[in-house]
Design a protein around this nucleic acid. Structure first.
Length: 544
RNA sequence: GCCUCCGUAGCUCAGCUGGAUAGAGCACCGGUUUCCUAAACUGGGGGUCGCAGGUUCAAGUCCUGCCGGGGGCACCA
């Protein structure tokens, strides 16, 4: 419904010679302001130097909408145009919810656009931690939002399996192997102290035999490196699968090297005259493309910085034909954005092609006491630890509750509490209650059909229905902003209305016409709650 | 020092590309259960939107400066 209104308002604006004017069409908080309100007249007044209310009159006079769609159009305040939908329009929206069912909320604004969403992309140096969990939830939800708005989405994970960090894991594991057979061995400088490597060492010895520890050091470290890579990747994949996150493509940094893409990228940069030698290193002129300084590509020792494969990898993604690429990164990498974008822009790729969604790091507390996380020290809460304690639903929902770029305090005690302080229970409960009505009635929700008669219902019923019909807009906006928390906010507001309606509007046992209309409303509410939760990767239980 | 994000009720946070009287949850003080799940509903108190300027018919929202907090400023990833 909002689409139709918006299009018509845009047409009228064009008619007045201001086709490119920006305006909002929103659902006012105050019900006395109607179902929709636009600031179009005020925006026109600014450009045309006219009186907003007079312009509003002209806009209203020029509107050509289907007869019977609106009950009233009012000009109010400084020049708002308020629209009140006719009961028939609302009933038609309700029918649409039931007809589209699990597809209700989808739209096609992104049709024809191919988008790559890369997220988690953890180093294969250890188990996933809580920060990766937030990135996983965020990336998966962003991907889902884009799918819901018609985009063709690829979920991708980039494995940083070529750097010096992997070498250190190999050395650290070798040391653990030596310790496991009773020898003195120290974790090397900058190595990994996590106890998970102790288990890896035990596993490795069990598989390879005790003689494995007697290998020459160089070979032992190399084999530990390879083994650690496989074991950590296996563990990460299993964790993500249990967390409900699936990837379409797993890319490997080592593969980017092996396929010659690093060399090709360097050639391309050099051919474009973007590189130069200085102090024995090879530099890229990123400062000419928005970065604050030039960056090193090849170090004095001849090896490449991680920057080079990253450029090659993004060029590869570009070559695969994506219209947009969205990387979900931890906020501690935000300083890295200008140089990657700079390198891509230098090679002629539009700056807007490469987008980054930053997620701030997560602070984990348990009943007020902070849980310290450090891979090096080995004391940390893994993602698996977390969701095994809270459940996947609570963890995923919690990670999505806040804007990605604001800090998140994850209180394990609160997230495991089965109380109304826990928003995921609140929203899921609303769904369970709607289902409960049908269970008590002994009917399947899908068996209750037909047009809804709003004439037998109250303002509270109507308010709930209005909120339900706002779902597609909420999804579209969240997708536009790449902000899944807008969906959780919507769901919590909806759940509040649902719980209130449940108490204020009795369904079963009311006069037949009322009962039927409310069952239809309950069915629609159940559908929208389920769709919202499903979109976020959270289950919608029928009973709790 | 430079860059960047954040600063809204006691606490945790929304606030829709500037719009109508700044909202919600928790906490606090009250009320509700012969009734589809009280894991719920409902009434109330509580705000110089960090501070100071500026732009605008209109600023929590945009600009400048300052204060406070996180993060980043590697030939680590």
């Amino acid at each position: 419904m909002s689409d139709l209104l918006r299009e018509e308002l845009a047409r009228v604006a064009a008619l007045l010679g201001e086709g490119d004017v920006e305006f909002t069409l929103e659902r006012p908080r105050d019900p006395s302001h109607g179902d929709f309100a636009t600031n179009l007249a005020m925006q026109l007044a600014r450009r045309m130097r006219g009186n907003p209310r007079a312009l509003a009159e002209r806009v209203v006079a020029a509107l050509q909408l289907p007869t019977g769609m609106l009950e009233a159009t009012e000009i109010a305040g400084p020049g708002f145009i308020n629209f009140r939908l006719a009961a028939g329009t609302l009933a038609a929206d309700h029918a649409r919810i039931l007809a589209e069912a699990e597809r209700y909320g989808r739209s096609d604004g992104g049709a024809g656009q191919r988008v790559n969403v890369e997220f988690v992309s953890a180093n294969p140096t250890g188990p996933l931690h809580v920060g990766h969990g937030r990135g996983a939830a965020q990336g998966d939800a962003i991907a889902a939002l884009l799918e819901w708005t018609g985009h063709e989405v690829t979920r991708e994970f980039y494995i940083n399996d070529a750097g010096v960090q992997i070498d250190r894991v190999g050395q650290s594991l070798w040391a653990r192997v030596q310790q496991a057979v009773g020898r003195e061995a120290a974790i090397p400088e900058g190595g990994y102290h996590g106890t998970y490597l102790v288990e890896s060492a035990r596993e490795l010895l069990a598989r390879e035999g005790a003689a494995f520890a007697d290998l020459p050091e160089a070979e032992g470290v190399a084999r530990c490196r390879a083994a650690a890579l496989v074991m950590q990747r296996t563990e990460q994949d299993a964790t993500l699968a249990e967390f409900g996150v699936r990837f379409d493509v797993m890319s490997s940094e080592q593969r980017v090297y092996d396929d010659g893409k690093v060399a090709a990228a360097l050639d391309r940069l050099a051919a474009a005259g973007l590189t130069y030698e200085q102090d024995g290193a090879l530099w890229l002129r990123t400062s000419s493309y928005g970065d604050e300084k030039d960056r090193v590509l090849r170090k004095q020792d001849g090896s490449y910085t991680y920057f080079v494969p990253d450029i090659a990898y993004h060029l590869d993604k570009h070559g695969r034909g994506f219209d947009r690429v969205i990387d979900v990164w931890g906020a501690d990498h935000h300083g890295y954005i200008p140089r990657v974008r700079g390198a891509l822009v230098a090679l002629g790729i539009p700056a807007a092609w490469f987008e980054v969604s930053l997620v701030q790091l997560v602070k984990v507390v348990r009943g007020g006491d902070e849980v310290k996380m450090s891979k090096r020290s080995g004391e940390f809460v893994t993602l698996r630890d977390l969701f095994e304690e809270t459940g996947v639903d609570a963890a995923r929902y919690w990670f999505l509750m806040r804007r990605g770029d604001s800090h998140l305090v994850f209180d394990i005690e609160l997230a495991t509490a089965h109380t109304d302080e826990n928003p995921v229970y609140y929203v899921q409960m609303a769904h369970a209650r709607m289902t409960g009505i049908f269970r008590t009635a002994g009917r399947e929700p899908a068996a209750v059909a037909g047009p809804i008669d709003l004439g037998v219902l109250t303002d509270q019923d109507r308010e709930l229905l209005q909120r339900l019909t706002a779902f597609p807009e909420a999804v579209a906006r969240a997708a536009r902003d790449l902000q899944p928390h807008q969906v959780t906010t919507y769901l919590e507001e909806l759940a509040r209305l649902v719980h209130g309606w449940y108490h204020g509007c009795r369904v079963l046992g009311e006069p037949a016409a009322v009962e039927h209309a409310r069952l239809l409303l309950a069915r629609a509410a159940r559908q929208v709650l389920a769709n919202g939760l499903t979109l976020l990767g959270v289950s919608a239980p029928d009973r709790m």
